[in-house]
Design a binder for these strands. Structure first.
Length: 306
DNA sequence: CCTGCCGCCTGCGCGC
DNA sequence: TGCGCGCAGGCGGCAG
């Protein structure tokens, strides 16, 4: 579940392995991986060879490769996307998956392969669930227009805490929805939203419009801190779905206080962490530290499956 | 304009 | 043992 820290780990790895290299060939193994590319797989394959990569940039969970002529290649990892430098260990093939020699040497989740004219290692885009993908963005080296609607993330040097607080308080919604809204502040997903709210002792359903500046500031500060700490240890890995470009896992899953901790004691007060269905996904929180909003028809948002 | 829900995907684990 | 289903969840599109 790549969120900002995980994507930043990937960006750094790609920077090491892509900058100053010229693309020689592109192979697309699954059309869905380039569904955002207007010209389709054939055009994606044709347009990239000859371009050199000058930088790998990121905003929130979006990555893009800046190219030498001012164009860009956009990448989003979705739920299960990975970039792997060829030669790094790949997850083993599921039993019975390989039905031919070709498939036996190609990982089943390989979607796009880039080769380079320096003869160095290939770079692969793998994606089990195909929520991720890549596309070509003409003139997008500084900031592709496809990403322009994404707000700055907390690790952006030009990120404004004051502006983000204002954006949150301007919303007429609940705080967790606002945190997951990439046009308010980017980079935060379900894991770091729950962790930030736990740190700030704020319930996920707290209305944003009635939040004070100090409370909204505390939530965003907590989000920034937890993502910074996660980045320092390589991000969060639950399984082989999230690894860096060398196939290695991060360690932040050992530091999670709320996410995935259902029935385990809150590290602060010992109350069992609870899991609620919220926004058709799981929200983990401490029912003691994070009190639900006790407004008018107070009910702790028990919609959907549980 | 704004908010919130749906559909897209695959693999794993659990219960019957 | 095998099958069906819940669950993981980011994001674009669109309905209201």
């Amino acid at each position: 579940m790549p969120e900002l820290p995980e994507v930043e780990v990937v960006r750094r790895g790609l920077t090491t392995h892509l900058v100053d290299r010229r693309i020689a060939e592109v192979e697309v193994y699954h059309d869905r991986a380039v569904r955002r590319h207007a010209g389709g797989a054939a055009d994606f394959r044709a347009v990239l060879p000859g371009h050199s990569i000058t930088a790998v940039r990121r905003r929130g969970k979006y990555l893009w490769w800046a190219l030498d002529d001012g164009d860009a290649v956009i990448a989003h990892l979705g739920m299960s996307g990975q970039f792997r430098v060829n030669g790094s260990p790949t997850p083993p093939l599921p039993p019975g998956e390989a039905t031919s020699v070709t498939e036996a040497i190609r990982h089943p989740h390989l979607r796009i392969r880039f080769t380079f004219d320096d003869g160095g290692p290939d770079v692969d885009f793998l994606d089990q669930r195909t929520f991720g993908g890549m596309s070509f963005a003409p003139g997008g080296a500084d900031l592709p227009q496809e990403i322009a609607h994404i707000a700055r993330d907390p690790l952006d040097p030009d990120f404004s805490l004051v502006a983000a607080v204002a954006a949150i308080r301007h919303k007429h919604t609940e705080i967790k929805r606002a945190l997951l809204d990439q046009t308010v502040v980017s980079g935060i997903g379900n894991i770091y939203a729950d962790e930030a709210l736990w740190r700030a002792k704020v319930h996920y359903a707290r209305p944003t419009a009635s939040m004070t500046r100090p409370v909204a500031t505390a939530v965003l500060t907590a989000a920034t801190e937890v993502m910074t700490q996660a980045l320092a240890v390589g991000g969060t890995s639950f399984d082989a779905l999230y690894v860096n470009v060398n196939g290695e896992s991060g360690y932040f899953d050992r530091s999670l206080n709320a996410y995935g901790q259902q029935d385990r004691p809150c590290p602060r007060c010992g109350t069992p962490i609870r899991r609620d269905a919220f926004m058709n996904r799981s929200s983990f929180f401490c029912p003691h530290c994070q009190r639900p909003p006790r407004t008018h028809a107070s009910r702790p948002a028990r919609a959907g499956r549980t």
